[in-house]
Design a protein around this nucleic acid. Structure first.
Lengths: 191, 191
DNA sequence: CGCGCGAGTCAACGATCGTTGACTTAGAAA
DNA sequence: TTTCTAAGTCAACGATCGTTGACTCGCGCG
């Protein structure tokens, strides 16, 4: 769990350890919910080193954000996109070790200090790419609506812990979520 | 904007002024994003009075949460539910004065201190009631999924400020959001 | 008119925050 | 082995946070 391994004086490895700890803590508690001392402690390092390597807490957050990518969502075939995304979202566990983009987004988007940076990362890294992949009418809005499904579901299931999405009850929700997302992929606009 | 009106020594009116200021600030910045001094200042009162009347900042937040209600969403007729909710969500402005339940939820649900209270209020005040109103198969999950649409959309449109949902671009999204919500109301589960 | 009670203010507490500059120390080069 | 550079530590800064106890003061009641 914590990095109590003795690490020889290696600037690169230490920098990476801080970054890894920051990923976890920012995703778990949000930008305002964690202090640099906690991050440094998990990296087995003094808090001052964080500022030494990254300049500031905000810059550290930017470094974390800059490497987020939604490519985990983009590999699915077009006709099974909704199904695969919904299954992924419904079964994702706490995911302690890995960088979790959706938790990072949901937990820090409200923070005034980094909210705009997150929005920019979202628009460039996800909406734009997904819209291009989708194509067709209202591609940008359809991509944004898929993001609504993903982030809204994660917000209620993993951040809020809504009972209706608990493991025992989530299956009907997963199935319906898959239909909804797929409808946005197909782009049918029945008006 | 600020309450610089001279208020005679009236405990009830002062209490209400604090509560009103708390509503706005909590909705605008989240539980962790605002200090009791700011709230008190807007109420035209010393910060110590907040704790005198409500016990603690957390208790003040509870007082705000206890009066939230989603009844604004529940008045729509069944066959036009999606349309009316989507229109409401797409046109809601910053709403400075009024209590805004969705902004309150989205901006504070990540806070460890009050997250569970918010989840409980959500489940009792919205999911349960909406599920009962919906009826039919998977009512609880369908209600929760409607909440996903509402909160996810508000998160991306008003909190993040996503460009795809700007006033000039929001109409196609509103139309598709209406279809999605209505599908959850109708409860059709095409599998 | 004066008295008391409660509304409201004030200053300060301890804790925690991000950040900084001076200091120590390990490890590679010579 | 000596030396020098960079990795890392340390203590402290100023600010802000929620909270508290003692204080002042205005209003209604007698």
């Amino acid at each position: 769990m914590s990095a109590d391994v003795v690490r020889k004086r290696d600037a690169g490895a230490t920098r990476e350890a801080i970054l890894a700890a920051a990923r976890r803590h920012f995703a778990a508690a949000g930008f305002d919910g964690v202090g640099v001392r906690e991050i440094a402690a998990e990296a087995g390092v003094n808090a001052a080193l964080v500022n030494r390597y990254f300049g500031s807490k905000e810059a550290l957050f930017e470094a974390v954000v800059s490497e987020i990518s939604m490519e985990a969502f983009m590999g699915a075939p077009r006709d099974r996109f909704g199904e695969e995304i919904a299954t992924l979202m419904a079964t994702k566990s706490k995911s302690a070790d890995e960088l979790d983009p959706t938790l990072l987004l949901v937990r820090s988007i409200a923070s005034p200090a980094v909210g705009t940076k997150l929005r920019d990362a979202m628009e460039r890294g996800f909406v734009a790419e997904l819209a291009a992949w989708l194509g067709g009418e209202d591609a940008e809005q359809r991509a944004a609506l898929i993001l609504v499904e993903i982030l809204g579901f994660d917000l209620l299931r993993r951040v809020a812990g809504l009972d209706a999405f608990s493991p025992a009850k989530v299956e009907p929700a997963r199935r319906r979520l898959a239909r909804t997302i797929q409808a946005h992929v197909d782009g049918v606009d029945q008006g």
